[in-house]
Structures are given as structure tokens and as C-alpha cells.
Design a protein around this nucleic acid. Structure first.
Length: 198
DNA sequence: AACTAATACAACCGCGTTCTG
DNA sequence: GCAGAACGCGGTTGTATTAGT
């Protein structure tokens, strides 16, 4: 019976470590990725001398060791964007993360599950009580919902592929410049599309 | 001060997709 | 074109920390 902090790799039958990474493991992994690149994770896992599977190495690199990772304190703008993107894309965390430089899908997923989902449920409940004052979050959330509803009712439909039912996020965001813009195509707001700098 | 509950976040797991031989 | 290996994603779990009683 393997100890609790180990797991047996199915392909090699080798007993691998699991659980929290140590600083020494991080160093080894970072060095190995430098040499072999952040692609062949099985190779990285083997060459690093770490008793970890490739999958675990990849996750650690992507969520923690990768350069330019922004950690902690998700700003209001970022939160705003996460909510908007989630409204449009659903739980496509990697896609959402791809639009937030320095943020990982895991971080956004965790943030959503622990902060935002609850927040939105609370706000939705409050919205149902007419006496309660509206908050910026609720207003913004409602605005996004309205925009989507207008599209579905025959407004700007070009973002949706009606054949496949797929949504093209690029129709809603201008990623061409540094950073990106939220292209507000909702016709009820002020007529023309508006780009919001993020 | 001690205990419990809630919260935040790192890591694991399973599965679908893509790549490679 | 096919099969197996590897990768990537989303859901879930485990655990350390913080807040409340």
C-alpha cells in the first residue's frame, strides 16, 4: 500500500509523489523547463529528477512558476471582465484566463467559485426585492444580460454562428491592441458600439 | 484560549482532444 | 487511417488560514 502522499503512475507503475510542492522541487522544475521547454511534460518530469508525473509538473508550471504570473488581488476591472466573459462563455476558464494577462485558469476558476458566484447569487436575490438599492455589480450584471437578450431578439447576431451555436468572443473584444477592449455592441445603450479599455 | 465554521487556494482526477509514430 | 501517448481543460477535493463564538 503506497503512502497517502504518493500515487502510482499507470503507464510506468512507478510510485510518484503528490501533494504540495517544495521550493527545491520548484527550482528543479524551473531549471528543467528552461532546458527542455514548457511542452514535453513527460520528458520534463523525467529529466528533472522529480518524482512527479508530467501532468503535475505542467500544472505547477502553468499556475505558479510561469513567468509574468500576476498573483493575488484581482482588481475591480479584472473582476468586471471575468463576470462579463463568464456571462458570454460560461465555464470556459482557459478562454477567460487567456483574456486576462498574468492570470491562470485555475486562479480565475477558484476566484469565481469562492467570490463571484456567491456574490452574483446574492445580488440576484436582492434584485428580486424592489426595495433594495442596486449596486454597481448588479447594475453591470444586468446590463450584460440585457445586451445578450437584445442580440438574441434579433439585434447584433453576427457574433453567433447560428449553424453551430458557437460564440465568437473576438466579435465582442478587440484584442488587436495591447491589452484589449470590450466592444459594447448593445444598441440600447447609446446607439454606437463603444470600446472600453481594460 | 479553545473549538468550530467558513473561506481561499493549491493540487488532483477524469475525460475529451490532439499529436505522433 | 489507426492506436496509443501526451496534453489541456473543467470539476472536485484537500488543507492551511482566518473569523466567529
Amino acid at each position: 500500500m503506497a503512502p497517502k502522499n504518493t500515487v502510482t503512475d499507470a503507464s510506468t507503475k512507478k510510485v510518484m509523489s503528490k501533494g504540495a510542492w517544495t521550493a527545491e522541487e520548484d527550482n528543479k522544475l524551473a531549471h528543467c523547463v528552461e532546458v527542455h521547454g514548457a511542452k514535453r511534460w513527460k520528458t520534463v518530469a523525467l529529466k528533472s529528477g522529480l518524482n512527479r508525473c508530467g501532468k503535475s509538473c505542467r500544472l505547477r508550471w502553468m499556475n505558479y512558476l510561469r513567468p509574468n504570473i500576476k498573483r493575488g488581488n484581482i482588481s475591480y476591472d479584472e473582476e468586471d471582465l471575468i463576470i462579463r466573459l463568464h456571462k458570454l462563455l460560461g465555464n470556459r476558464w482557459s478562454l477567460i484566463a487567456g483574456r486576462l494577462p498574468g492570470r491562470t485558469d485555475n486562479e480565475i476558476k477558484n476566484y469565481w467559485n469562492s467570490h463571484l458566484s456567491k456574490k452574483i447569487i446574492d445580488q440576484t436575490q436582492k434584485e428580486k426585492m424592489p426595495d433594495q438599492p442596486s449596486t454597481p455589480l448588479a447594475t453591470m450584471h444586468q446590463k450584460t444580460s440585457d445586451a445578450i437578450q437584445v442580440e438574441e431578439e434579433g439585434g447584433a447576431r453576427e457574433a453567433w454562428n447560428l449553424e453551430t451555436g458557437n460564440f465568437d468572443v473576438n466579435e465582442f473584444f478587440d484584442f488587436s491592441a495591447e491589452g484589449f477592449y470590450w466592444v459594447d455592441k448593445s444598441p440600447q445603450l447609446d446607439g454606437d458600439s463603444v470600446a472600453h479599455r481594460s
